[in-house]
Design a protein around this nucleic acid. Sequence first.
DNA 1: TTAACAATAT
DNA 2: CATATTGTTA
Length: 227
Amino acid sequence: MKEDDEPNWFSKWEDDLPSPEDLTPLSQTLITADLATAFDIRTPIPHPHQPPPPPNSGEFDSADRTLKRPRLVWTPQLHKRFVDAVAHLGIKNAVPKTIMQLMGVDGLTRENVASHLQKYRLYLKRMQGVSSGGHVSGGDPATDHLFASSPVPAHFLHRNSDQFMVGNYGQLQPMYGQFGFPRNGQVEHPLVNRQNQQVMGGLIRNPLALSCEDERKVLTLFPTGDD
DNA sequence: TTAACAATAT
DNA sequence: CATATTGTTA
């Protein structure tokens, strides 16, 4: 009776081990749709009614990759959501996939975001060159119109956009308060000049609009309901 | 192999 | 010019 009693010296720690489900949320993809809603970035978007199913077009509107989608049109509302996502993520985590997830827009692909992000970064860079908020530097106002219609999270303009990591769960305020350490001591107001606003009344008022440009169909993603 | 990113193409 | 697609690199 020496082994019958079962001291279970190993059974002990074995029992103590956490079950596979108990641990490692680390492998998870960052920020699920649920998390995104948990933030404050508005509601999760329903879906923008996919491509117009032209009966005899041979294209299906299902979430079928590998098939061509209509050109995405970045409305001010959609861009706003984009900026919000980027702002809340911080530079470090603001990569296409994460942004896409945080935006929670159905039908929006990583490529869509990547492409837009590329341009957005160029826009920010152009602004850095020039002092405060004035748009110059050979950038046509018409070009920046979209970007100008959305408030830029300040910190992005200056080099020190050292945002905190994703840990801001629960409550997120539009204010980050932490300007960090201005090595230059140059704290400016990233006020965006809106004097160059074009005709914006009545033109961009109809969301969820599906138009036809030439023969290419363009897809306008839903209205976020707020701007 | 995935994804970010820059470059290039529509 | 706005967005897509591709190519390269991490």
